[in-house]
Structures are given as structure tokens and as C-alpha cells.
Simulated assay, not measured.
Amino acid sequence: MIDIRVATKNDIESMMSSRLEMLKVVNNLSEDYEFSDEMINESRDYFLNGDHITVLALDGDIVIGCASMSFIRIMPTFYHLTGKRAHLMNVYTRNEYRRQGIAQKMVELLIEKTWEKGATEISLDATELGRPLYEKIGFTDSTECMVLTKI
């Protein structure tokens, strides 16, 4: 039976291994790809000290999926009186466990916890593979946001 639960700081090694595995798969990197020390150290620091909730999907002791919600607070607006917003990231299920509703259960748990924390908006960057899941849950495309990325 698959267990889906909120991770704690004691799960740091599971969170790290799952994130690095997800990054390799999503970015088509080789199995033996070596991440920079900065990527590893900053990811570890975020899991330990960042404002987030991460959930893990486990088959026994084996991590088969993960998903994270990162929280930000901006100045309140008329539509977001608390200024609390969230960004869904790193939704990943190992290939052999896909199409079983695991990702949906992880995301729904994160959404529930996010509303409990008082956030009024959740954003995400969807891959083509993930888009049908997010639409099924109720996410819609937004036309209100522009971004500037430092290169």
C-alpha cells in the first residue's frame, strides 16, 4: 500500500534523493550526472530552513514520489488580503508508479495544508505531462502574471 505523508526534517535524505532524481528525469540528465555543490547545498538548506511543505509517497521504505509547496508573503491586495501565496513545485512520481492517482493525492494533500496556512493563491509551472492533472484538480491558466528572470 502506498503511504502519502507530510515530510519532516528527519526525512532530509529522502527529500534530497527524490528531488535530485526528479531533476534528472525532468531535465533528461544521465543517471551519473553530478549536481553542483551549490545546487545540493541550497536544496538541502531549503528543505531544512525554507518556508515549505513537502509530501512524500512511499511504497514501504522506498520513496516513489514527492511534491512541495513553497510559501511567499507579499503586500496584501484586494484579492489576496493576507498576502500569503504559494507555489507548487517538484511534483514527481517514479515512472513505474504513474497513472495510479499518487500525484493527485500528493497535490490534494498539499492544497489542503496550504489553505489551512491561510494562503489565498497557488501558482505552478506545469510541464505538458503534468498539465492534465492540474486542470483536473482545478488549476487554470493565468493571464495576469509577467516575469523577469535574471540570466
Score class of each variant (00 low, 15 high):
residue 122 I to C: 05
residue 82 T to L: 09
residue 66 C to Q: 13
residue 94 R to Y: 03
residue 83 G to S: 07
residue 111 I to V: 01
residue 33 Y to M: 05
residue 95 N to H: 05
residue 75 M to W: 08
residue 99 R to C: 03
residue 110 L to C: 05
residue 30 S to P: 15
residue 63 V to I: 04
residue 48 L to A: 03
residue 8 T to C: 00
residue 15 M to L: 15
residue 56 L to E: 07
residue 17 S to N: 15
residue 55 V to L: 02
residue 126 A to V: 14
residue 109 L to T: 02
residue 18 S to I: 02
residue 65 G to P: 09
residue 92 Y to N: 05
residue 105 K to D: 11
residue 34 E to I: 14
residue 101 G to K: 11
residue 35 F to N: 08
residue 122 I to P: 04
residue 27 N to T: 12
residue 24 K to N: 00
residue 99 R to Y: 14
residue 105 K to R: 15
residue 135 E to G: 00
residue 18 S to Q: 04
residue 27 N to W: 10
residue 36 S to M: 09
residue 46 Y to P: 02
residue 6 V to F: 03
residue 67 A to D: 00
residue 50 G to D: 06
residue 58 L to V: 06
residue 111 I to W: 04
residue 12 I to S: 01
residue 83 G to Y: 01
residue 132 P to F: 11
residue 131 R to M: 09
residue 10 N to C: 06
residue 146 M to H: 07
residue 146 M to N: 09
residue 27 N to A: 10
residue 85 R to Q: 13
residue 109 L to P: 00
residue 146 M to F: 13
residue 29 L to V: 12
residue 103 A to F: 08
residue 129 L to E: 07
residue 54 T to V: 08
residue 27 N to P: 03
residue 103 A to T: 01
residue 141 D to M: 11
residue 53 I to T: 06
residue 87 H to D: 08
residue 96 E to K: 13
residue 59 D to I: 02
residue 72 I to R: 05
residue 128 E to K: 11
residue 54 T to N: 10
residue 6 V to R: 07
residue 69 M to D: 02
residue 13 E to G: 03
residue 96 E to Y: 07
residue 61 D to S: 15
residue 62 I to W: 07
residue 14 S to M: 10
residue 9 K to P: 02
residue 9 K to M: 01
residue 133 L to N: 09
residue 39 M to C: 08
residue 99 R to E: 12
residue 96 E to Q: 12
residue 105 K to W: 05
residue 101 G to P: 15
residue 92 Y to T: 06
residue 123 S to R: 14
residue 27 N to M: 09
residue 146 M to K: 14
residue 34 E to P: 02
residue 65 G to W: 03
residue 48 L to M: 13
residue 20 L to I: 11
residue 120 T to D: 12
